[in-house]
């Protein structure tokens, strides 16, 4: 797509994708390139600081947030394949730096050009047909809207819109879709019994949906749900939206 040829997007790939799900990152790169975007990857990047911020360690979060401000200072667009890491940059950085005029201005500038993957595709690249990325998926899919994507960023229709246009893909409704999967970062190990209760219900609803694949825009939620599905010997696969859109993904 030549229409996007002039667009350069730098990836903030997230530590979860970097360390645990590099294939998701590869699919993100492939999809963006198929859409004509010039993809960059500042290699000094690590983590946005969300795990420490959500646990109450603002100083540590600030240290990591400053690195992100620095690394993406000159980016045209920043694309993040995670609703909650994108929310950290867009929403929580403004809280982290609300006592520092200079850094707050930088944080606002970064927030203004940072997009979660699905909203970048739909709202910036104006993709209205997933076939534009060459996507095709034979099978049934159900979608879990992750909480921060939905409620911090207000991204609701974009991933659905992309999924609906994937040739061959049949979408199944997910009961209680907007209920949290129970991950919540350190919450999942601080209160494992409550987290387990929540993911158990999520898994039951996914199984009842009849879908063979669960799709979401956050690998941390999918790590939680996928881990529970695997423990229950379920054959249901978990995939990031980028993997569904990427025809080369297995």
């Amino acid at each position: 797509m030549t229409a996007n040829a002039k667009i350069t997007a730098d990836l903030f790939i997230t530590c979860v994708v970097d360390q645990l799900y590099p294939d998701v990152g590869v699919s993100v790169v492939r999809v963006l390139r198929r859409l004509g975007v010039t993809v960059g990857f500042p290699t000094d990047q690590t983590c946005c600081g969300q795990p420490v911020y959500n646990t109450g360690y603002s100083q540590q979060a600030r240290t990591l947030a400053k690195r992100v401000l620095e690394q993406f200072k000159d980016s045209e667009y920043v694309v993040v394949p995670s609703g909650s890491c994108a929310a950290t940059i867009r929403v929580f950085y403004l809280e982290i730096f609300d006592d520092d005029t200079e850094l707050l201005a930088e944080a606002k500038a970064l927030a203004a050009k940072t997009y979660e993957f699905s909203e970048f595709l739909v709202n910036v690249l104006k993709v209205d047909d997933a076939a534009d990325c060459g996507a095709g998926h034979e099978g049934t899919v159900t979608y879990h809207p992750s909480c921060h994507l939905l409620r911090e960023l207000g991204v609701k229709s974009e991933p659905q819109k992309l999924l609906q246009s994937v040739p061959g893909l049949e979408q199944k409704e997910l009961e209680g879709a907007e209920i949290c999967c129970g991950f919540g970062g350190t919450f999942s190990v601080k209160f494992p019994h409550i987290s387990e209760g929540m993911v158990t219900d999520k898994v039951a609803n996914i199984q009842a949906s009849g879908a063979d694949t669960l799709v979401s825009c956050d690998m941390s939620c999918l790590m939680n749900i996928g881990g529970a599905l695997n423990r229950q010997e379920s054959a249901i696969k978990v995939r990031h939206l980028a993997q569904i859109l990427d025809p080369e993904s297995e």
Partner: peptide, 28 residues
């Protein structure tokens, strides 16, 4: 970690990080 794996599995670390993949095969 044991609090996690009590009721859920955790993916093992893959052979390569995204950083390594980028440097080897993805970087323009």
């Amino acid at each position: 970690l044991s609090r996690w794996t009590k009721s859920r599995d955790l993916p093992t670390l893959p052979k390569q990080t995204f950083h390594e993949l980028w440097e080897k095969e993805l970087s323009p």
